[in-house]
Simulated scan of single mutants.
Amino acid sequence: MAGAPSTSTLDHIVFLSPPGTLEETKRKFVGYGFDVIPGGRHSGGLSENLLIVIKDGVYLELIAFLHPIEHYPEGSEERSRRESNPWAHKLPGWIDYAFLGTSPTISKIINSRAEEEGSGVRYLAEVPGGRETTTGRVLKWLITGPDPTFAVDGAAKNGSLPFFCGDITPREWRVRAVPTERVDHPNGVAEVAHLVVLIPPKDLDEFERQLTSVVGFAPEAGPGDTRTWSLSTTTGSHSPRLILRTPQDGEEEIYVRKRRGCIYKVAFQLARAEGGFLSI
């Protein structure tokens, strides 16, 4: 679609902690050598987060629900909202990733592209979201995600397809509401190198078509069942790779069975003289 906004800018990657354990996850990521900064509580009051901002403009969102589902009385509004949250029943770990929504009509752009290509993916209409920071600033954005009735084998429900976050308030409020030195991490991480999404072999071809409609261009074919898209960042500093592939060993097969596909690993490029990667 000529002149359409980009649908391939990596915005953030989401890591889920068990309910009420956000501080434990903070200690874990500090142990990895990251500088973890305050986030806030999401609108609706069900979850809270912490942030890790990378120099390339991508950030990691460490998120946890305040309470397990059973905390809320059956039949209550809070119980209903908690149970219906798209992340309500996910296992802890990497659970989702977001692209930057640069237009309030990203869903229409993707859906039109998908219809032309016959890929079968469809995104829901944008809905408002937000968060109040620890300093009291109210952030607002628009969210769109894949319609689970059009996804491959539940892929929309497990974070294999990205959602989009488009800012109403300035993105700098959401991401860089702290001094820029907080992006200089003790571990030397400078940028997101790649994220790996695993998918069952039977779903690979169909899911590749759907993801192509979302990203807006076809991937590069790699060895075996590997497909790679080169994404952009808000700083334009480099191109993190989105790698789609099938399991290569028993451990990965178990991972896919438990999660029905999802983000498997995130790798970071180190800025030290010797280079190298940190993979989590």
Rank of each mutant, 00 (worst) to 15 (best):
K28T: 15
E48T: 02
G3F: 03
L16A: 14
G45I: 02
L60W: 04
D35S: 14
F65M: 05
R27D: 14
H67I: 00
D35F: 09
F29M: 10
P5H: 10
H67R: 13
H12D: 04
V53Y: 13
V53P: 07
I54A: 05
S6R: 13
G45W: 05
I69Q: 13
I54Y: 06
L62P: 06
K26P: 00
I37A: 07
I52S: 01
E24I: 10
E24W: 03
H42W: 05
E61N: 08
L46F: 04
L51C: 10
P19M: 00
P19D: 00
K28Q: 14
V30N: 07
V14W: 00
T9Q: 13
F15D: 02
Y32F: 15
R27G: 14
S6K: 12
T9W: 10
S8Y: 13
L60A: 06
V30L: 11
T25I: 13
V36F: 07
G20Y: 03
K26R: 15
E48M: 01
T9N: 11
I54L: 15
F15Q: 09
E24T: 13
P68F: 04
Y32R: 12
Y32M: 12
D35G: 08
L51W: 03
F34Y: 08
G3T: 07
G44W: 04
P38G: 02
V14G: 03
P38T: 03
S43M: 04
L10W: 06
L50V: 08
E23I: 04
P68R: 06
P5S: 10
